[in-house]
Design a protein around this nucleic acid. Structure first.
Lengths: 220, 220
DNA sequence: GCGAGCCTCCCCCGCACGGGGGAGACGATC
DNA sequence: GATCGTCTCCCCCGTGCGGGGGAGGCTCGC
């Protein structure tokens, strides 16, 4: 009976890579994929994977928050392997505090990745902060504006407000947003004001910056 | 006759992902992989790929140096698509200046990655953000990597204007920028207007979006 | 010397933006 | 039925923003 794995990462490329690496093993089966933390819980409920390979930096709900939510709301939760690009100790500790069972760098070799998944599935934990620290020093820690991200995630934007923010982040004026959403400009102004208040932004430019910095919208 | 691609990335996971994405296409063939920039030149000599998909951050020889070396030492060099995780102004400029033909984020969707490889193979240049491509059209460039370079350089921001744009992208108002730069607000307004005109932006929000989309400023 | 480009500052002017209120309609929840 | 949150729309009002001009001082290179 193979180890079943759910992949959670906002980059399709990474998901494809993980899938290729893991499915090359006869005893490991990738049973599903999710692109953000918010989609994880229902998927876990349905697929009941043994292991969730979870990215840290994701839109909507990051890996750490998703881990917390998962362990809090799901009975008999899967083991969680946090997968990330390059890390600082804060992330390691935060992830472990949140209840993750292991911690792995994307930079790891395929054999290490496979090994990690097997270990985690067997109930072992896995972490190597030494190599993490070394890599962080080697490549220079870019950090990331976690403050802005946290703000956005905990801001509690409604669906409509998020929609408006997305359009703001595409450079649309209030009038253009109104036309796009088929509502009045006064309505859009209300939503924009709500977005600004919730994000702690002074104007739409700052709101758009927060959207980019938090990963709510991505360049490209 | 399929497009042949050489993958150069120090992360096996990313190579596996790219391979999975690209080989799903009947007209694209991955002919080889390399884990660092130093291994690229002999591989290119032997395999003669149409396109090299090259990571920026790599041990031994980074993607920019490898690009330079490749174009300097190989006859009839392949087209070079720089693939990277984080958008960073220095990298964009440096990579294009080194002679890369395109610039792509790893977080791009599979369809975008495939599209990028095809475009590059056809001799087009590619800058992932639409706004930059738009600039290319506006400035009447003929395509090719010279175009890409020229666009970014000839987008023609002066040093001062670039400085103002950076501050705009940090959410500062005109008055705050003026205070920071120790000049009058009217001066800042002049610079901002120049930036807007050169970027084809209607307001500062669109300018900041362009800054993010072009990699002029990077999230995090 | 002279122009070109850049940085600096100034004027007028229209308007989109954002703050601060309020309010009706609807669905979900209790 | 009552309450809450969301979405919708409205009012007034001040101002920061951006367009369209112009102009002086400075350092370049021709």
């Amino acid at each position: 009976m193979p180890v079943t794995v759910l992949l959670v990462d906002d980059e399709p490329l990474v998901r494809a890579g993980l899938r290729a690496v893991l499915e090359a093993q006869p005893d490991i089966e990738v049973v599903g994929e999710a692109a953000d933390g918010a989609a994880v819980i229902p998927l876990v409920r349905r697929l009941r994977p043994d292991v969730v390979a979870m990215d840290v930096r994701m839109p909507l709900l990051d890996g750490i928050e998703a881990t917390r939510a998962l362990l809090r709301t799901v009975d008999d939760p899967p083991r969680i392997l946090v997968v990330t690009t390059f890390e600082n100790d804060e992330y390691v500790y935060e992830a472990l505090r949140a209840g993750a069972d292991g911690f792995l760098l994307k930079r790891a070799r395929p054999a290490e990745i496979v090994h990690a998944v097997r270990l985690i599935a067997e109930g072992e934990s896995l972490l190597f902060p030494a190599s993490v620290r070394q890599l962080a020093a080697e490549y220079g820690d870019t950090g990331g504006n976690r403050a802005a991200r946290a703000v956005l995630e905990r801001a509690g934007l409604t669906e409509r407000e998020a929609e408006v923010l997305r359009l703001m982040a595409r450079g649309l004026s209030n009038a253009e947003i109104a036309a796009r959403l088929v509502v009045g400009t006064e309505t859009v102004k209300s939503h924009v004001s709500a977005v600004l208040a919730k994000l702690g932004a002074r104007d739409r430019t700052q709101a758009v910056i927060a959207a980019y910095e938090s990963g709510f919208v991505a360049p490209g």
